[in-house]
Amino acid sequence: MSADHTARVSGSDGKTYPASYAANRAAIRAAIEADPQATTTAIAKRLGTTRDTVYAVRRSLCDAGALASIDATCSALAVADNIEAVKDIRDKAKAIQEYAREARDTSLFGKSTRLFMEAERRAGELLVAMRARNELAKHGGKRRNRPVDQETGLYLEKSLNDLGITSRQAKQWEKLAGMPDDIFSEQIERSTLRVVAMFDPDAVPENHRALGTGENEWYTPPDYIEAARRAMGSIDLDPASSAAAQKVVQATRYFDAEMDGLAQTWTGNVWLNPPYSQPAIARFADKAVLEVNAGNVAQMITLTHNYTDTSWWHALAGRADAICFTRGRIGFLGSDGEVAAPTQGQTFCYIGRDVTSFTEQFSAFGLVMVAR
C-alpha cells in the first residue's frame, strides 16, 4: 500500500488529505481542467499517483467552486450563444458529475446530469440554427467545397471539425434539440436514476410508481386489475402488496413488506406488481420464475416498467407466454385519487396456458405479443 493511503495531513480547511496532496495538486488540477471527462483512475495512472490523491483534488476544486457552482453554470448556459461556450459548460458539468459519482452525492449527480444534458441540447439548438443560416458546412465541410471570403480569405462556413465536434455528437445533440420538453425531462431522469441506482440503490424510490412523480404511494388503476382477474379467472395471491392496495386488488391472500413475499411460497393465480428499486426488482423477478418452474403457480401476470435493457426484465419476458406492451403510460393512482404517470411505458407479462384470454383482455391496453 502506498504512502498516499496511510499518511494523511490536515489542511487549513479542517479536512484531511493524502500526504502527497500538496506536491501533486497543481499537476492534478491541470490534468482535470485539461480533460474534465477523464476518470479519477486514468488521471492517477497518468501522473503516477493514487486515486485517493486525485479524488482529494477533485473534491477541493468542487468545494472551492473552481469548477463553478451548478447555479452559476446554469445561468451561464442560459445566455450562451456560441458552441465553444456551451461545450465549456458541458465539460464543467461532466467534471462535477465525476466528482459527485466519486463522492456518492446523489443530489449533486442529479443536478450535474441535468446541466450536462441541457448543455448538449443547447449545443444542438445552436447547430440547427447555424444550418438554417447556412453557416455550417454540409457533408463534413470538405475544404475544397467550402466558400471563402474574398477579402479575409476565411471560410464562410464552419465545419464540425472546426468546432471540435464529431458527426455522432452533432446528430445526438440536434436530436435532443428537437425533443419535446416532457420527453427530454424523462430522458434526464432515466439517465440519472440508472447511475444513482448503481452506487446508492436506496436513493431510488422503493415504490416504482413514484418514479418521476415525486410521491411515494401510487396504485394500479382498477381497470388493469380487473382485466387480470378476468384473464386468469381469479387473483389468488398478490405477493408484493399492502393493505391499501388490496382495496382494489382483493386477492385471496397477499404478502406485505413485513411478511416478505420473497420468503414465502407462491401458489395459484398470481398478480405481481413488485417494487422497482434494485436489488428488489431483480429478486422478485427471480422469485417469480423460480415459483413458476417449481410448478407452484398456475398462472401469473406481472406489471413492470418496460426496462428492456435489464436482465431482470429479460428473465420475466423469457419465461412469459405472452407480453402486453402498453400504449402510452399507465396513470397510477395516489391515495387521494390523484393521477400520475411514471416516466416510461409498462409491460404486462403473462405466464400460463390461457394466452387467448390474456390477449382478449389486454389487447385494449396495447400490443400483445405471443411466444412461439
Rank of each mutant, 00 (worst) to 15 (best):
S69T: 15
D105N: 15
G140S: 15
A68N: 08
V128F: 07
E118R: 10
A129G: 10
I70M: 06
K111V: 00
I89V: 12
Y99T: 11
A72F: 04
R131D: 08
V148W: 01
V79W: 03
N134M: 04
I89F: 08
V57K: 06
K142T: 13
A93D: 00
A78R: 10
D162E: 10
R101D: 13
V57C: 12
E84I: 03
A80T: 05
L126F: 09
S159C: 04
D71K: 13
M117N: 07
E120R: 14
R58C: 06
S159E: 04
S69G: 15
Q150V: 05
E84Q: 07
A68V: 10
T152E: 01
L160R: 06
C74E: 12
I96N: 02
K94I: 07
T73S: 10
G65P: 10
S112T: 01
T53A: 14
G124D: 11
Q150W: 01
K158T: 06
D91W: 02
A68R: 07
I83L: 14
L163Y: 05
A119P: 03
V79T: 15
L67C: 06
S159T: 13
A93L: 03
A137D: 05
L126P: 07
I70C: 03
L61A: 05
A129T: 14
V54W: 06
M117I: 12
K87F: 01
G140F: 15
L160C: 05
N82K: 12
T106S: 09
S69A: 15
R101P: 01
M130S: 12
V79H: 09
S75H: 04
K92R: 15
P147H: 08
A123T: 02
T113E: 02
L61I: 05
R90Y: 06
G110V: 00
L160W: 05
G153R: 00
D88I: 00
E125Q: 14
R144E: 13
G124V: 09
L127S: 09
D149A: 01
F116S: 02
D162K: 04
G110Y: 00
L108C: 11
C74N: 13
A129R: 14
R144Q: 10
L77E: 02
P147E: 07
V148A: 03
D52P: 00
E135M: 13
I96K: 08
A64S: 15
L61F: 06
D162N: 14
T53K: 12
A68H: 11
A64N: 15
D52N: 10
T53P: 08
C62D: 05
T50C: 09
D52H: 10
T50W: 05
L154F: 04
E151T: 03
